[in-house]
Design a protein around this nucleic acid. Sequence first.
DNA 1: CTAGGTGCAAATAATTTGCAGAGGC
DNA 2: GCCTCTGCAAATTATTTGCACCTAG
Lengths: 324, 324
Amino acid sequence: MHSSTASVDRVRPVGTKRSNKRDFIVNVFLRQEGHLSADDLVDLIRREDHRISRATVYRTLQWMVQNGIARKVDFGEGRFRFEHSYRHPRHFHLVCKSCGRSFEFLSSDIESLMEEVASVRRFEMGQTVLQIHGTCEACRTGHPQGAEKTTEMLFARDALRIAIATERSGRDFYARAARMTKNTRARTIFQRLSGEEVDHLNKLESRYEELLKQDADLESRPPFLFFKGAANGLFSAAASELNKVSSDLDALKIAIRCERGSYQFFKKYGERFEDSEGKRIFLEFADEERDHLNLLLGELRAYTEKRGRRPAASRGAHSARANA
Amino acid sequence: MHSSTASVDRVRPVGTKRSNKRDFIVNVFLRQEGHLSADDLVDLIRREDHRISRATVYRTLQWMVQNGIARKVDFGEGRFRFEHSYRHPRHFHLVCKSCGRSFEFLSSDIESLMEEVASVRRFEMGQTVLQIHGTCEACRTGHPQGAEKTTEMLFARDALRIAIATERSGRDFYARAARMTKNTRARTIFQRLSGEEVDHLNKLESRYEELLKQDADLESRPPFLFFKGAANGLFSAAASELNKVSSDLDALKIAIRCERGSYQFFKKYGERFEDSEGKRIFLEFADEERDHLNLLLGELRAYTEKRGRRPAASRGAHSARANA
DNA sequence: CTAGGTGCAAATAATTTGCAGAGGC
DNA sequence: GCCTCTGCAAATTATTTGCACCTAG
């Protein structure tokens, strides 16, 4: 389960040869948790084998960065640190200036805003760096701090929570929509979707239980992934919108907007991972949402064609494509 | 108007002596626009006086950072750069990996989210670093790019725009509230506030005109300060809330929530500046909002006491204090 | 006169590199 | 055997420091 069990074997680029020393260095690196400086790693290596030179450690670090095993991070200390990259999504950092440790988080909300800024300033966005420097709780109070869970575990937990909240709100939304609609065909679709949400919800909930079994106090750990939209589920605001809506067409459009947002969110974050639990959850979920989206879009097409009008679906705040 | 005209004279801390060389270095630094590395500055200095040593430049850079004239920034290049700090608020960066230039922006929205993350993770937040690395428009397309305006000017422009939008929405909100309220005393207050918003609005609009006169294409420059809440004015959402509201008390509470949000926003960003146009606008504005807030709070107290009930003002999403 | 300020050269600190020998395929 | 990897020591780069001298207050 720990990313430390990852081995070098999976990446072996052309023009590169196996080497015991390098493998050893990589494995020692992967066994560590935090953000190591080159020097930290040299020390760790020397502890077990003092015949490995500093230059080799530096060269291996470079090699790991090139091959996606490690990422170089810069906390402004005048030297670089390195963190796992395999099975470890890009994220942001809380850096404690007192103990030097750093903690990870991810905020979908902040990322969206950054994308917006980049777009308004006509900037093609590549990597982003976000650091909050300050003092961690352990340093501020006494020292009653448990070790950080691995990011992978926290991410899986948060992914599941968000997915569950989304399914719940989706189930309620479609149930309500089915109750409200007058059109028989639309009602059938809403009922079907509601049913699918229930099925998936059960699966997700048992997966969540399973995850919690692996680690008793996982649930009480602070959040890793921040995403306001999902606090009560992506569909929850939409459900109350249904009250103010007159036609079945409007309900359809609201559903489409929600499924599209949901699809995009889960696709985007799912792709950040190399086969971790979080990735699987997000991508499966994205697939399901894409299916729903396509179903709804087909329905919208049928609905509008029947009336001989051009689809009015291009309006609205969400301008993104579903690429389906 | 340019921050480059700032001279060393204003900062002269105890235990520090005047020195021609240092003054010279500081002035050369302040005359530049971008983000200089120590070496860039050495080159510039050498061009005019090659008898100044590299060590002195480094020492002066340190001195400038200590005395709030410069800020040390780190774009992960393996060396530090320095930017103006006097008359220059903290901000975030867009860093072009192609031409190496960097561009500035500020996002109140992102800052709020960062504060929230820090608070949830029980982290005492100090400085923050946010960088968007990528490719700027000039590098992506041909090269038809005008020079960046000074941040000070852009900030003043955005400060004024936000203030104006807020005043406009405030004026509308209070006018509407006055029309709706049945209570005579409350109506008088709402009318008075509406009138004050109009006065201040006129002042702000002429100030904005004045600013534009100083620079023809200032208006067309991309935004520096991003703040969603102010797009249509902080009161604009509240104005439509008024429709759904039954009592004058509710209207009062909505007004208080808006004034408090507005006060906090303008205070926070106003304090980021050392006497610039932006600072003045924001802080004046914050003062005015605080007065309004106090007026409304007094009214709320009177209103609730009259009914022999304890004030219900501590409810609601905004838990911050007005410190008035 | 005396606490800074300055130049110069040497010291650090993190990281890279040239080159000769070792080792995987 | 060929080509890559490794060790070692020297080189590089960014920045700091010791020390003798200079200068403002």
